[in-house]
Design a protein around this nucleic acid. Sequence first.
RNA 1: GGUCUGGUAGUUCAGUUGGUUAGAAUGCCGGCCUGUCACGCCGGAGGUCGCGAGUUCGAGUCUCGUCCAGACCGCCA
Length: 587
Amino acid sequence: MYRTHTCGELNITHVDAKVKLSGWVQKSRDLGGMTFVDLRDRYGITQLVFNMETNAELCRSARKLGREYVISTEGVVAVRSNKNSKIATGEIEILVESFSILNSSEVPPFTIEKETDGGDELRMKYRYLDLRRVEVRKNLELRHRMAIEIRNYLSNENFLEVETPVLIKSTPEGARDFVVPSRMNAGQFYALPQSPQTFKQLLMVAGFDRYFQIVKCFRDEDLRADRQPEFTQIDCEMSFVDRDDVLDAFEGLANHLFKSIKGVEIKEKYPKMAYTEALRRFGNDKPDTRFGMELVDLKEIATGKGFNVFDSAAYVSGICVEGCAEYSRKQLDELTDFVKKPQMGAKGLVYVKYNEAGSFKSSVDKFYSFEELQKWADAMGARPGDLLLVLAGDTEITRKALSELRLEMGRRLKLMEQKTFKPLWVVDFPLLEWDEETARYHAMHHPFTSPYEEDLELFKSDPGKVRAIAYDLVINGVEIGGGSIRIHNEGLQQQMFDNLGFTREEAAKQFGFLMGAFRYGAPPHGGIAFGFDRWVALFAELDSIRDTIAFPKNNAGRDVMIDTPSTISQDQLDELHLTLKKPESKK
RNA sequence: GGUCUGGUAGUUCAGUUGGUUAGAAUGCCGGCCUGUCACGCCGGAGGUCGCGAGUUCGAGUCUCGUCCAGACCGCCA
């Protein structure tokens, strides 16, 4: 037997008990006459004591224990004379009577402590060591608890978890697929699912009524801090529902998680904000509503006064930053540089300081009188002491830049408290999006999304205006999930494919199975999918989803620990009927 | 595909205008130490300054290329 207890559970009530513990040597402190060893496992840290007076030989051998040695030890629980209130077992220690080294360890390349000295790259390469750290482990524990709560909640709501295949069919719509060559079918490929979308719809046709799955999905696109090539979705679908049925059901799930995991009760219904309204008020479709500082359109009042930058702009808007009229030249230059970064793309930044005395100091004093600037200030609800920041230019670019500027000011003024949660539904997304590259419309959400019936006639006149019965759950500026009411009618689905520029043959080849199913009594249905990794990151207060994943990929999609992607042998290639374009020299 | 930032001891970093023998902290090794828990004190080892070219009397420092890492834009239905 290796242990009677874990390293996290012994306390004052166990005094005098004879116990066995096993774990890793976190650290040893050799004081000469006695040696302390911190023994660590998943559950905590327990102090072992060795004393030269009691057992000199044992004490001397304990001095040789290196960091991360795995040992098993036997001894008696004793009250500490000097207690440590920082750890759960801090009131007791083990008077060791014997121990054995189960495995030695090389000196680890970084310290395995709460605050490690290791950088990201090293930690990823030795991820199995990094995972020993409490800071990383607690994220995975949180992830586990959330998964349990989700399963319990949805199961209680009659949702059935059903597994769908991972080897499926490639489709050109949407993200790039990861493909898997088929050995038994020369020249043919499976694709890994970007989501179980069509399968969950087929489950609705099959009458499962309420489905969910916590499921891996795959997209072969470039990575970001919040994007991994393989990621986990909470995928859900319901039958006989309209939009608000779905929103209510999953507001329930979200509220359950807030309460059971974060101890937060959100009493009010989540606001529903139209996509166009979100863009107008916040400049993006995932507004962070923890603070105001909304975008105010100044096109009407600020143009026609001879300031060509504004007069020639399609879009002129600003934000009012409370209490920042005192900003220095240097600070304003920083903000200007911020919006002029190539990724941001704004040409410049106009500022107006609304001084405490009621006067204005702006970068456009030449063009605007006091009265005119007063109009701006009034339009923006500014008060003396505030700073107005105004951008102008192309609508899309400028709106995005202003939205980023708003978030930057929110960060600077510390308006984005991580303990505060502001969820909302963004609804009424456009059904279609014009794609310059392919010069055609494509589905903004996916081609199975139902349009509003009253918008159907716009298909002919102005397809970009057709609204989808689609919705996103946004919490604190993070898109946590999204879904839609689906098309369940073959004719409409066919029309949708027509509008997306599919030929009948293409549509039949790629999605014939779905449209075929629609002929056999498909119920009205809709659903949603949540980014599980992102949700965990939000609750763990992490900026990156990487530390919510046990073994994540790096920026370039590599797993640096197992060193993959990697080449395969010629035999494997032959078996898969594959010929590489040119010999790969890289490993 | 693009923009930006970084790469110096095991690790995290500093390194001035281009100038003698490249530093600190921590970790590691050795010694001392009986109540530590970031133990303390003394001593020691440890460097292809990512790699390759170039400029220069002289390059960690400047230039170009390249590789790696990270953030972002494009992309992500």
